[in-house]
Design a binder for these strands. Sequence first.
DNA 1: TCAAGTTGTCTAGTATCATAGACAACTTGG
DNA 2: CCAAGTTGTCTATGATACTAGACAACTTGA
Lengths: 242, 242
Amino acid sequence: MSMQDTASSGVALWRLVADGIERGIADGRFAAGDKLPGEMEIAETYRVNRHTVRRALAALAERGIVRAERGSGTYVETQKLAYPLRSRTRFSEIVGADGREPHGRLIEASDDVATRELARELGLKAGAPLIRIEAMRLADRTPICVSTTWLSAQLFPGAGDVFAATRSMTKLLEHYGIRDYRRGATRITAGIVDATDAARLELALGRPILVVDATDHDLDGKPLVTKHSRFAAERVEFLVES
Amino acid sequence: MSMQDTASSGVALWRLVADGIERGIADGRFAAGDKLPGEMEIAETYRVNRHTVRRALAALAERGIVRAERGSGTYVETQKLAYPLRSRTRFSEIVGADGREPHGRLIEASDDVATRELARELGLKAGAPLIRIEAMRLADRTPICVSTTWLSAQLFPGAGDVFAATRSMTKLLEHYGIRDYRRGATRITAGIVDATDAARLELALGRPILVVDATDHDLDGKPLVTKHSRFAAERVEFLVES
DNA sequence: TCAAGTTGTCTAGTATCATAGACAACTTGG
DNA sequence: CCAAGTTGTCTATGATACTAGACAACTTGA
C-alpha cells in the first residue's frame, strides 16, 4: 500500500487496516479473547508502517473492539451481537443480555408526509402527517444500526422531542400509554452501505449491510410505527427461530 | 463537515460527496442528461469547500458518470439499463428495446463436473459431465454482465464451440432444436465484485454487483441451462413485475 | 452587446496522513 | 534474573486533504 492508493480511493490507509482487522474478527479468524499478531507483523502483512497499524488499533480500541496490553499484545474484546428476531424484540434487552451497554442516539427528527407505501403500512391515508425519526443504536461504543422510523403525527404529537429525551422507542411508546407492542412481518434484505450510513456506522465504504423493514403493532394489531433499519452486517448476526 | 469528520471516519470528504452524488443519480434524483446543481450549490449542501466538490466531480467524470461543460454546468452521462425480469427474458431484446446494440463475448468454455447443487438444478446426477461457458454481455460498448453457464455435456455436445460462433445463448439453444424456453426461479443477491470480474466488467474494485442465479427450462419444464450472472449494479436496474 | 452564472486554474495556508527511527516501559518464558 | 518480544511515546519529514480567495474562460439569456 502507499499514499497513491489512499488518494485514488479516498479512504485512509489506517482505515483500511482497521477494517481489515475488524473483518478478520467478524469472520472468526480472530475470536473473542484471541491475541492479535504483533504490530510489526500486522504492518508487514498490510505493507504499512507500524504507526499506521497503531492508528488503526487505536480506532478499534476506542470502539471497544480490541484492548492493548503493554508488553503483552493486543486482544480481541468483542464478538458478534446475536440478534434474535422474535415478535417481541427490544434492542436494549438484546444488547443487555449480551453483557454490553445499549445506547440510542437521535440523528434527526423531522416532519414528513405519508407516501402510499408508508400509509399502507401504518393504516393511514396517503399524505397523512408523519414524524420521521432518524436514529442510531450502539452496543457499548460500537454502532450497530441506523433506523428511519415513521409514526403518525396525530397519534404521537411531539414524538421527536420525546425520543430525543428518552432515546428509546420503547420508552417513547410508553410515554403515549402503550405498554407493550409486537413486531409484525419483517423483511430482510442486504445491500451496500452508502456514504452517509457508512459514516454513521463507522463502517468502511462498500461494506455489506442488512436491511430490515418492519412495522410494530399494538396488542390489538393496530400499526404503531414502521421502520427501515440498516445493520452493520459484520457486527450482528440475525437469529431466526423456527 | 470538516476535517474532524474525516479524521474520525478515515474517509475523505470528497469521497463522501462523490458517493452522495452518485447515489442521487442511482436513485433517479438526477436523470441522464440532467444538469447537476452548480459546484457552489453542491458545496453548500454538503457544507464543504468548492474545491472539494470539484475533486468529487472529477472522480465521477473519470468514471464517465458525469461530464462537465465549461460555462454551462455538469451533466449526468449515464443511464441505467432497465432490465425486466420476466419468465421470458432475452438480453438482446432488452438491450435492443433500449435503443442500444447488444453484444456477446465468449471468455472461456471448458468441461466441468456437476456438483450436488448444479445437478439438482439441472435434473442430473452429481458428477454428470457439464460444459461450463464463461461469457460476457455488453450494451453498445459498455459491459453489463458476466455469466457462468452450465449445460449438460450429453444434451448439448460441443456447446462451447456453438456459443463461440453464435455468441448468443438463445441461438445456441436453437442450434439444438429448442425454439423457446422459460426462466425458472430466479435468486437475486448483491455482493462486491472480485478482481477477475472487475477487470472484465471494467468496474472499479469494490463496486457492488447484482448476482442472479437462474435456471432456464424448456416449455415442458425440463431444465436446460443454469446460470450464475454478475451484473454491474451501477449500469442496470432490475424490474420485477408483480 | 452585456450581465449573470458557470466551470477551469492558480496561489497560499493549515491540518491530517503516512513514513521513519529511536528508545522507554512492560510482559513473558526460560 | 535475563533476554526476547511486546506496546507506548517521542521527534522529524514529506505527501496529501481541505479550506480560502481571486481571477480567467466560457455559456446562457435578456
